[in-house]
Design a binder for these strands. Sequence first.
DNA 1: ATAGATGTAATAATATGTGTTACAATGGAT
DNA 2: ATCCATTGTAACACATATTATTACATCTAT
Lengths: 142, 142
Amino acid sequence: MQFSVRLPVATHILLCIEKFQGEYKTTSTFLAGSVNVHPVIIRKTLGQLRTAGLVEVAAGVGGAKLTRSPKDITLLDIFRAVEEEEDLFHFQENPNPQCPVGRNIHRVLGTRLEKIKQHMMDDLAAITLEELLNAVNEEDVP
Amino acid sequence: MQFSVRLPVATHILLCIEKFQGEYKTTSTFLAGSVNVHPVIIRKTLGQLRTAGLVEVAAGVGGAKLTRSPKDITLLDIFRAVEEEEDLFHFQENPNPQCPVGRNIHRVLGTRLEKIKQHMMDDLAAITLEELLNAVNEEDVP
DNA sequence: ATAGATGTAATAATATGTGTTACAATGGAT
DNA sequence: ATCCATTGTAACACATATTATTACATCTAT
């Protein structure tokens, strides 16, 4: 079980938008060429990023740009833009309320798993697009 | 995107095995009654827990028991027993190596996501079956 | 031997993720 | 005003993962 490719792809898109700003028009086809997915996937993802307020996309003319500085965009912003807000783990719906384990498992285990998810969110929030962009620029191994 | 019901179900199973040890024979049908899933799901999950060395199952006669104390079984043990070992996020296979973002994204983002997964594993390792069992016993709200 | 139980394969139904085609709508360029 | 590259979005196809269920061979205390 793993999270989908959407966070990595969305992050890739945002990095390209910022890196190539002014140099190339970052159309869905251009971005698709870097990420290596179908342009429609790019457009769908850009749509989610636009809904989340992270990018502005020029309808008609084409191209996208960030709405704010890369230092103010975190992986958590991107994660929330492309993933549903839900529990980290799926719980069995109707455990037996006659059983002391059954009637307590969701609360007892759920609260603890909730905290783990919160840690994950905190970790994602600590990584900015700027940090990733710097790493790409400084550690580039052509 | 969320993890499957397997970790919660496996944890439920282990809690029941320990809680009802000596009182009831914890067969797949008995456990299925508490978890509210099909007995075959229980048997498959018990199979994974047995492979991981967490339980012994009495073939033929029926019933299961833990191989060690609940304080020595963590959620990480259970997680590893029922989930594949893989990256937390799925990466796009072939990003464009001509693009500075494309040829660095996997390493730059991957190493950071790897750390987040490690934190999650550490969090899971910090929660023991004993802690959960105590919580079930002490906070039981019938 | 029998009865109840496990181990496991096979199948089905459902959901999710990803790729693709198609096309209306947009908006600058001419 | 028209053209054309582009976006936005629906529709569909396909693969994979998850969960439920049936079936049955195997096991073991009695």
